[in-house]
């Protein structure tokens, strides 16, 4: 029984390793915790190269490793939301795979390609933001006295995600077209199969 082809399995693993390294290269540290980094970039790259399944798997594995390396546990549900669901959701960017690869094939620097990339980054960051906000809401609702705007606290606290998204989009918009000619296109047409 082999469910994930070796080639994709290895790519996922190496993208996870790169995400861990990029997470350490902080772009900006928020004054109250939470860091702005390019951690979402490898997950989005693998999602656009291999599709939603590979993207979500990369996110989830990254979450698990982050949990092993540097856990912050304040609530059981928070662990699942902040580590597994938040990063898994980033991989959903893979729904743009087919259309992005087709566009990039024609012209990797076209406005359309850039717009698709923007949509992919925006969608995955929005989903990640939602997961963190729900997790924060659970935390603040549990620990803040009743009657306080828990959802507002959480939305503010997690603002580092949209800020990261801007950096990730800037990096993706400049990296992916260059990568396309070298790496992305080779995965096209294989439909998740092995080279």
């Amino acid at each position: 029984m082999q469910s994930i082809p070796t080639r994709i399995l290895v790519e996922i693993s190496l993208c996870v390793a790169l995400a861990v390294v990029l997470n350490a290269l902080t772009l900006l540290r928020m004054p109250y915790g939470g860091t702005v980094s390019l951690v979402m970039l490898p997950i989005i790259v693998i999602a656009l190269r291999r599709g939603v399944f590979a993207g979500v798997t990369t996110g989830v594995i990254y979450g698990l490793i982050e949990l092993m390396i540097d856990p912050v546990i304040v609530h059981p549900l928070q662990v699942v939301l902040d580590y597994v669901i938040a990063f898994g959701a980033v991989g959903v960017a893979g729904i743009f795979r087919t259309v992005y690869l087709r566009t990039a094939e024609a012209n990797s620097r076209s406005i359309r390609g850039l717009a698709l990339l923007f949509l992919a980054v925006a969608l995955s960051s929005a989903l990640r933001y939602c997961a963190h906000v729900v997790s924060g809401y659970i935390f603040f609702a549990q620990y803040a006295p009743a009657g306080q705007p828990a959802i507002l606290y959480s939305a503010l606290y997690n603002l580092f995600v949209p800020v990261s998204a801007i950096g990730v989009f800037a990096a993706a918009a400049l990296t992916l077209p260059a990568l396309h000619s070298v790496s992305l296109s080779r995965a096209r047409g294989l439909n998740g199969g092995q080279d």
Partner: peptide
Amino acid sequence: PVSRARAYIPVLIPLFVNLF
């Protein structure tokens, strides 16, 4: 952060190429 992210481009491209 955006200019920092841009500074990382010449690092990211070889990193990804080598990764694959």
